[in-house]
């Protein structure tokens, strides 16, 4: 069980003014479930994922994994405990190759596993293992390599941050299938799939909507999907139109 209690996050914006990004988030996430996390841009989904991974230290609240308080653990300690995060925008590295980063992700697993996972995300190992993670890979390729790392890690808790972003339509379908087989109905695994995509969200068991730093809705995928379409987005549109006239 992954439990977030009263998680708040305040960070400074570019002008140095504090901004409340997450407000009192309480969530209990159970093993065996694939959760879809969605909501408007800037709502706080990535920030929440980074707080769970330990990349952003929370301002208030605590996080428990299987009853253990992990709030003060560093990123690598959390990784070792079994938390993985696939970045929405993976950083690039001058000098490191695809093989280097996959080797770290693989840990003690056999080198053969690396090739297998690359193929699973639709990249041919012969063409990609030696490629540089600097600037010579496209955005979609970088995302797929990110997925290969996360599949290799095969953690108890996996957070996938818009895995479909920048990836071509064929691969989106492929990834969606991969997640369905790899993360759905896996008794020990807790998976958070952050997405806006109609090929991704329907495979989730449950949906959580994050808006303005809060959990706005939580429920079955079908219910939330319907509500979201009608209520949430029309409201946002109104707000925006209201401001246009000012």
């Amino acid at each position: 069980m992954l439990e977030l209690r009263n998680i708040g996050l305040t960070m400074n914006d570019e002008n140095g003014h504090p901004k409340e990004i997450l407000k009192k988030i309480d969530l209990k996430l159970e093993p065996g479930k694939l959760y879809g996390i969605t909501g408007p841009n800037g709502g706080g989904k990535t920030s929440l994922a980074k707080v769970i991974m330990g990349i952003y230290p929370q301002t208030t609240g605590e996080i428990f994994l299987n009853g253990q308080n992990i709030s003060a653990l560093t990123v690598d300690e959390r990784a070792k405990l079994g938390i993985s995060y696939a970045f929405q925008q993976p950083p690039r590295f001058k000098g490191l190759t695809v093989e280097d980063i996959l080797t770290i992700a693989a840990g003690k697993k056999e080198p053969r596993a690396i090739r297998k996972k690359l193929r699973e995300v639709g990249l041919c190992p012969e063409d990609y293992l030696d490629r540089n993670l600097g600037t010579e890979l496209s955005g979609g390729e970088i995302k797929r390599i990110e997925m290969a790392q996360i599949l290799l890690r095969n953690s108890q808790v996996t957070i996938l941050d818009e895995p479909e972003a920048g990836v071509d339509l064929w691969t989106v379908q492929k990834l969606s299938n991969l997640f369905m087989w790899g993360y759905r109905n896996q008794p020990d695994k807790i998976t958070l799939l952050i997405s806006h995509h109609e090929k991704m969200l329907p495979i989730c068991d449950e949906m959580i909507v994050i808006n303005q730093g809060e959990v706005q809705k939580r429920g079955s995928t079908q219910d939330v999907w319907n509500l979201m379409k009608d209520e949430l987005f029309s409201k946002n549109r109104e707000q925006c139109q209201g401001e246009v006239g000012v």
């Binding site: 560093t74 990123v75 993985s84 770290i104």
Partner: peptide, 8 residues
């Protein structure tokens, strides 16, 4: 942070 999130 990215590399640390892979467990090193």
């Amino acid at each position: 942070l990215k590399l640390m999130s892979l467990g090193i």
